[in-house]
Amino acid sequence: MNLERIKPHFPWMTLLALVCVVGAANPAFFDPLGFLSLVTDVVPLFIMALGMTFAIYIGGIDLSAQQVANMVTVVATVYLSQFGIGVAVICVLAGFLFGAMSGFVTTRLYVPSFVSTLAMGFIALSAAKYLSGQRALSMDVTERNTSFGWMFDSTAGVPHQLAIAIALLAFAWFLQTRTSFGRALKAVGSGELAAVASGLNVDRVKILAFAISGAFAGIAGLVFSVKLSGGDANLANGFLLLAIVAVLVGGTPLTGGVGGVINTAIGTLIVMVIRAAMVYLEISATQQQMVFGVVLIIAIALTIDCSKLSGVVK
C-alpha cells in the first residue's frame, strides 16, 4: 500500500470519518429531516463548485465565480418581473458569457487565469453595482412564487432544489465522461502539449471550460437569489473560498487532469459536515473562514501533483 494508491480514496474516506465523528458527538446529525435540510442549504455552493471543477480540471482557476454569482442575483431580481421564469435563461447566459470572456483573455491574451478571472470578477462587480444602483434589492414575493415557487416544494420527500443539484451533477458528469468535450478536457488537464500535438483545438476547450464555470456560477447565483428572494452586489460573498475548498478536498488537484464532478459532490458534502460540526461545537460563523482557509491549505498540499509542477513552483 503506498500513498499514491490510496490518494484517490482519501475524499470519501474523509467524508465517512467526519460523518461518523460528528454523528457520534451529536446523534441529532443523523435525523433525516435535519440532514436533508443541511444538504439542501448547500445546493447553491455545490452548483458553483461544480462549475469551478471544470476550470480547475484543466489546471486553471476561476476566481470570478463569486462575483458572477453576485451579478446574477442582481440580474435575476431586476428582470424577474419582466421575464418571469425566462430570467433563468438570461442568468445562465450572462454567466456563460463572462466565463467565456475569462477564457478568451486567458487563452488568447496569455493572461494567467488567476489574474484574468480576478479582473473579470471586478468587471462583473461593476456591472452588478450598476444594475442594482448599489442597493440591496428584493424580489416581489408573488412574482417569485409564480415563477420559482416550485423550487421550494418537494416530490417524494426530495426537495426540488436538491433535485436541481442532482440533475446538474448528472449533466456535468455526462459532459465530463461521455462527451468528446469531456475527453478533450481531460487531455488538456493531463497533458496540454500532447493535446496540441494530437490536433485538438485546445483554446476552444479551455474557453468552454471557463464558460461552463461561469454558467454554473450563474445558476448558483440564481438559486441563491430565489432562496433569499433578493439580489445584491455582495450577496454571494464568502462562496468563493468554500467552492474552491469543495473542489480541492474532493480530490481534484490544482494541477488538473484528475478527479472530477463526482469528487466535487463529495467535497461539498465534506464542507457541509465541517460546517455542521462547527455549529455543533459553537464555533461562530465569523471563525469559520479561518478554519476553511486552513482546510484549504491542507487539501492543496495533499492533492497537488508535484511531478506536474516541473520543479519550479511560482
Partner: peptide
Amino acid sequence: VEGIVNGMNVFENMTLS
C-alpha cells in the same frame, strides 16, 4: 510529454486525434 497523455488510458489516447 507530447506523444501520449500521461493519465489517460490506451483507448483514450488512441482516439484523441
